[in-house]
């Protein structure tokens, strides 16, 4: 279990980005962090990834090995083809290309891009680029996948498709996933747990567990548990905003 204990992050000058965040994340769960822009969601994710150190508090229970990280932007290397982009984490870990080949192929198959190994990012659509970024994040077989509004820039149809693919991936690979979003509907559709953050300084205002079928599909969006959860999360999100104003 990943435990965030009293996490705070202050900028030099004293401005607090996040303040006293306590969060427990069960192994194998899909946790969404929902909040308005500027509430410190991304900062929280960077702290969990170890890219920054908190000003106070501690993070314990990080799984061994590499963590997978996906940004809002696909952040691919434009000079490298899809295969070499996905190879990057293994290459940095000094895994030989021969050894990496089957793992790259596996990761590309999981995101449905087996036929595009030799394509360059420039030739791909936004949705496909995001798939490459996800393949790169899972190629090291991480136990923890961190996603920072990965689908925010995509159109709704592409986003729904990627949501379903992500759920399948999460189920099959059993990767503990932390997913930052500002969309209530997306968070309810995807998550087993939802944490709602308030802005300035960012704090966890409420937690929700989403009950739903083990395998979710578009029909889930028409069920009562889905609608109830959306209503409850929206209400708490409004409260969180009211606190800030």
């Amino acid at each position: 279990m990943l435990v965030l204990d009293g996490i705070a992050m202050r900028y030099p000058g004293g401005l607090a980005a996040i303040d006293r965040v306590d969060l427990r994340i069960e192994d194998g769960s899909f946790t969404s962090i929902v909040g308005p822009s500027g509430c410190g969601k991304s900062t929280l994710l960077r702290l969990i990834a170890g890219l920054a150190s908190p000003s106070a508090g501690a993070i314990t229970g990080r799984p061994d090995g590499a963590v997978g990280l996906v940004f809002q932007d696909a952040t691919l290397m434009p000079w490298a083809d899809v295969e070499n982009n996905v190879y990057l984490p293994l290459r940095l870990a000094r895994v030989s290309r021969a050894e990496a080949k089957p793992r790259i192929a596996e990761a590309l198959a999981l995101v449905g891009l087996s036929d595009f190994a030799q394509a360059y990012p420039r030739a791909l659509s936004g949705g496909m680029r995001m798939r490459v970024a996800i393949a790169r994040a899972i190629v090291t077989r991480p136990r923890l996948l961190l996603m920072d509004e990965p689908f925010a820039a995509l159109d709704e149809i592409t986003r729904n498709k990627l949501n379903d693919d992500l759920l399948r991936l999460w189920r099959e690979q059993e990767i503990t996933t932390i997913f930052v979003t500002h969309s209530v509907f997306e968070s309810v559709y995807l998550s087993t747990d939802i944490a709602i953050m308030s802005p300035r300084p960012g704090r966890i205002m409420a937690r929700h567990a989403v009950s739903g079928p083990a395998i979710r599909d578009a029909d889930f969006r028409a069920t009562q548990p889905y609608l109830d959860a959306c209503r409850a999360v929206s209400r708490d999100l409004e409260r969180a905003m009211a606190v800030a104003v």
């Binding site: 590499a66 984490p89 940095l92």
Partner: peptide
């Protein structure tokens, strides 16, 4: 790209890499 720089840090790239 700052995102790529973050990835290189995440995967503990050496200075040469």
């Amino acid at each position: 790209d700052p995102g790529l720089a973050d990835l290189f840090r995440l995967y503990r790239a050496t200075g040469w890499q």
